[in-house]
Design a protein around this nucleic acid. Structure first.
Lengths: 167, 167
DNA sequence: GACCTTTTCTTGAAAGTTTAACTAGATAGG
DNA sequence: CCTATCTAGTTAAACTTTCAAGAAAAGGTC
């Protein structure tokens, strides 16, 4: 008796299915919740807010496009569109990179910084209420470990060092 | 001396910030990964695939639009558009609800079922490789607990029983 | 039954994302 | 230097999602 050459699928156990479902529910509900909260209070979706936060923490509040895209895990194309929109709002502006004429820096404007300062407390509250205020300290630690493991498995870095970092 | 009426923001601790960042990275990387996997192997984004899975598990492979939307946590509007697209692909068809003339049932077609059968193994593998094969059994259990807590806090059900379930 | 409200689902336009193609500048090899 | 290749970033078009508005049936209430 030979077994099939294509190995049989290892389906999810009942528990795994429940965990997976819970994961999908929680992550989509949370993303929706924060998108709405920020759309209402800051006039932009969550990912755009994340871009401003990145810039606010970068030296001189500016960053190369590619690095910014890598940090928030989006494609360069998506970032181009996003920055164009944020530029229209006056929260970011583009600036040529002195050392590499192909390059662009995205720069957080004073208006952008002001709007971040205004909306950050509300956003932190939302994150707290949805996540940290509901979990025990052990759960927070555990969640961190788990998320780092998952992210680590999906980061291109490591094995395929010279592949484009996304796609 | 009265204290300020607006309570001071409770910022995130260092650990919380790291956990939050890890959460954002892991969830966006995983969602991107599965979207690409399914776009390649099944010709649709992850959420659409989830709709077909729901239908495949429902009695008689059909479900009312609103219930389907609630199950996968998307708005009715989004579902309408999504079902329209899946209908064009021939994987779902609409059917009037006999008991409520406003209602529609989304029905998984045989083609839809066949395509699910074809792509399910690859998708389960992807989920396994990204998540379950990397976590210890305790971590899987813990992740389930954590995600249920978070989802529970965001579910409209409970307090606001008569609010629309989303938005 | 007439009236008002709620629920179900759809629609069209605006906003955001993806995909593939493309421009321009950097880099490496000969 | 010249050419091939790679990298940074943008763009156009197709697709998806959101938002606001609306049609139609159901469910009260008097």
């Amino acid at each position: 008796m030979t077994t099939a050459s294509t190995s049989a699928t290892r389906w999810l156990t009942d528990e795994e299915q429940h965990v997976w479902r819970a994961y999908l529910h929680a992550t989509t509900l949370l993303e929706d919740h924060l998108d709405r909260q920020l759309q209402r209070d800051a006039g932009m979706p969550h990912i755009y807010y994340g871009l401003l936060v990145q810039l606010s923490q970068a030296p001189r509040r500016r960053m190369r496009m590619t690095e910014l895209a890598r940090n928030v895990k989006i494609t360069r194309s998506r970032l181009s569109h996003a920055i164009a929109r944020l530029e229209k709002n006056g929260w970011v502006r583009r600036e040529e990179c002195p050392s590499d004429k192909r390059g662009q820096n995205a720069v957080l404007t004073d208006d952008g910084y002001a709007m971040l300062s205004r909306s950050a407390p509300g956003h932190v509250d939302a994150v707290r209420q949805a996540m940290f205020d509901r979990l025990t300290p052990e759960q927070v630690r555990s969640l961190g470990d788990i998320m780092r493991v998952i992210a680590g498995g999906l980061e291109p870095e490591g094995t395929d060092a010279d592949l484009p970092w996304l796609r």
